[in-house]
Each structure stands twice: as C-alpha cells, then as structure tokens.
Design a protein around this nucleic acid. Structure first.
Lengths: 211, 211
DNA sequence: AGCCTTCCTGACCATTCGGTCAAGAATTTT
DNA sequence: AAAATTCTTGACCGAATGGTCAGGAAGGCT
C-alpha cells in the first residue's frame, strides 16, 4: 500500500542521480550554452546513458530550469550578510566577500546565470520579475537608510548594486579572459585575495565608507 | 582580361550583402549564442535565402569569427581616450564614458564578446593572447605612472581595469535584467546619464581622484 | 514467494541543422 | 553579341539531436 511514498533507499538513489546529473548539466551548460549543450554530452559527463537522464528530467529545458533555479538560490542565500549588518562597512564589505567567494567556488553556475540573462531570460523571466525585484528593492531600502543616517555617500543604491554584481561576477564569467591576462595560469590564493581587496577597497572608498 | 579584379558595382553589392549578413548575424548570435543561432534565422533576419548567406560566408564558424573580430576592433578603438589623457581624472573618466556609450549603442556586440569569452574563447583565443594582453599591459604602465606621480591611490591597475570593464559592460550584457528591474521599461536618456554618473563617481572617488 | 513499484537502457524515430549543388539570372568584359 | 564571371536560389542530403518506448533488472512490500 501507500504507493505514493518512495522508500528511503530509492529516494537516496534518486537524489544521488539527480545531483550527479545536475552537476554535469551545470558544467556542460556553462561551457556550451543552452543551445550548444547536448543531452548526450551531459549524460556522458554524468556517467549515465542518455535515456536514464531523460528518466529523471524529461526535457532539456526542465533540466536547464532546475540548474538555473539552484544557482539563483545559492545566489540569494549568500546575500543574507546584507540584512544582519549594522552598517555599510560591514554589510557591503561582507556582501562583496561572499559574492567573490561564489565566483571562485561556483564559476559554472555564475556563467549559466549570465548566459540565461544575456539571452533575455527566456526560461526564468518569472524569477527576475518576482524574487529578484523583491530582493533588490529590499536592499535598496537598506542602503537608503544607511545614506539617511550619514553612514555613506548619497549614491544611487540601484547602480551601486549593479556595480557590486558586475565586478564580483566578472571574476567567474570572464575567468578565462582573466586567466589569459594572468600569464595564462589560474589565479592563486594570493591573486584572489588581491582581487577581493582591490574590489572592496575601491567600492567602499568610492561610496564614502571608512574601513 | 584581368579576371582577378571584381568590378566596382559588383564590389558594392558584395560589401552591402556582407554588411547586412554581419549585422543580422551579430544580432542573432547575441540573442541565441553560437550554438542556439541557426543559419536559417540569420538569413531570415538579413532578408536573404540561406544558400545566399553560405555564398558569402561558407561556414557558420567563419561568419561568427568575422562578427567577433569586428567587435574586438570597435572595442579596442574606443579605448584611445586613455593614452591622450593628462591624468586619471580625464583618462579614466573618458574611458568609462566611452565604454558606457558602447554598451548603449552596441549591446549585441558586447554580448557576443561576453558569450565567446565565457565559453573559453574557442574562436578568438589568439586575439586575447596577443592584442588584449599587449593593450592591457600598456594601460597598466600608464596607471602606474599616475600612481607614482601621486595622482591617484596605489590600487592594483589590473583589478581596476577589470572593475571598469565589468561595471560598464554589465549595462549591455545584463541589459535585460536591468530593464526588468527598471519596472520593465528600457532605460531613458536620464537613466543612462544617472548610470554613467554613478559608475564614474564611485570608481573615481574609490581610487582617490578628485573630480 | 509473489507482486508491485521504481529504475535502467539499447534501439529507434521525427525533426532540425549546417552545408551542397546544379541550374539559371544578372552583370561585366571582350 | 557572345563569352565569361559573379550572384541567386530551391531542392536536397547526411549527420546530429531531443525525445520515446518497450522490455527487462533491481529493490521493496505483504
């Protein structure tokens, strides 16, 4: 009886395979774009037959949507630093740190997101219109209170957010270009530290926050 | 005689058609990515039969390479502002202005470039390694002289350039996201002005340049 | 054990895509 | 005028792709 409940072992198997497929898909989508990615290649990277991938994700678009959704969640979660902060030095500084860390540890996800948005967000437009709009407006309010309290210069909160997003995500999305300019070798720990420091230093000083 | 020389009228026809095709291709590649773009759609946008497109550009990759090359030239040309400047206030300020203007007038090109780099620059890696490296190192030298002359803070020139590139190109590459956050309507002249002002204000102040 | 649900997979299909080709139209050269 | 060159285009082709399906394997339930 109870045909609606899947046993635990089976559930684990399902979760495991879904995870393997999602990770493979994120990588392939990031490298080839939605149009360039093939289900066959995703299956190969995941180490499964193509038909098995279709068993868990019936269409390419559904799989892609899952990938983008996951990225969006990671993205939003890492922004919690903002709210708890007592002022811009701590709040924005920690936010930049968190976003730089995502660019370093999650570059494929960032690329998929960028690719999706660049192509007009055909799949996740609803996310943009609801969740992202709400989140953005909330942070704009926070920044405005900081400005009103004289904790930072009266800069446009909206464009400040864009500046933070772009400068931090650049290290993921354009990682290949950065590596090429870095004598062709990947950034070291020190390189990443220098990048983080430079971005924070310029932006924080640029908005009149003492560090 | 002289079978190697194409007559003027024919040459014009060739140039005209190549231009139409290149513009159509830039738009389609920007919207769909290399993999998602189809020769049929490019032909439709150009208003020509597909076979005619293949007459001028034998393969999809050749057409794509042409598009990316053109963008790269525009990109480099617009950076001349840097050299002629007497100091960072003028040089970097004008550079940011120029890059913002390209983002506004040439968004498709910026997207194609971003897409190409994000996927590992499979087509124009040689451009990165030669021209871009040379250009970047040249500007780093200029910035270092400004720092040595006490005209600006001792920030990492390399990361400053990345910050400028990312923040300005963001308005092209993520234009759709920005429009969605801007109550769904395109940026007005005033919006663009505000964006330009905010970016310049934060970056220039951030590197210790008085405006 | 016997039954049921879930999982796995090779073979297959319809569609689409990049690219070809041959035949003709247009234009230039002789 | 006629020969030569360039341009145009519908029809076509092989290859690749997203997706299907039937039949069987594996695991869980009574």
């Amino acid at each position: 009886m109870n045909s609606n409940v899947t046993p635990i072992r089976k559930q684990n198997k399902r979760r495991e395979n879904e995870l393997v497929i999602l990770q493979a898909a994120e990588k392939v989508f990031a490298e080839a774009g939605f149009g360039g990615a093939t289900m066959q290649l995703i299956a190969d990277v995941a180490g499964l037959p193509k038909a098995n991938v279709h068993y868990y994700f019936s269409t390419k678009e559904e799989l892609y949507r899952q990938v983008v959704s996951n990225i969006f969640e990671v993205w939003l979660a890492a922004a919690g630093t903002f709210e708890a902060a007592s002022g811009p030095a701590e709040g924005i500084g920690a936010y930049i740190d968190a976003k730089m860390e995502i660019s370093r540890t999650h570059p494929a996800g960032s690329k998929v997101w960028a690719s999706e948005v660049m192509h007009g967000a055909p799949i996740i437009q609803d996310y943009l219109e609801t969740k992202l709009v709400a989140w953005t407006n909330g942070r704009i309010d926070v920044i405005n209170t900081w400005i009103a309290a004289g904790l930072m210069d009266p800069v446009s909160p909206r464009h400040l957010l864009y500046l933070i997003w772009s400068s931090t995500q650049h290290y993921a999305d354009f990682g290949h270009q950065i590596q090429t300019l870095n004598t062709g070798t990947p950034l070291t720990d020190d390189d990443w530290q220098a990048a983080k420091t430079a971005v924070k230093q310029i932006i924080l000083k640029g908005i009149g926050v003492k560090t």
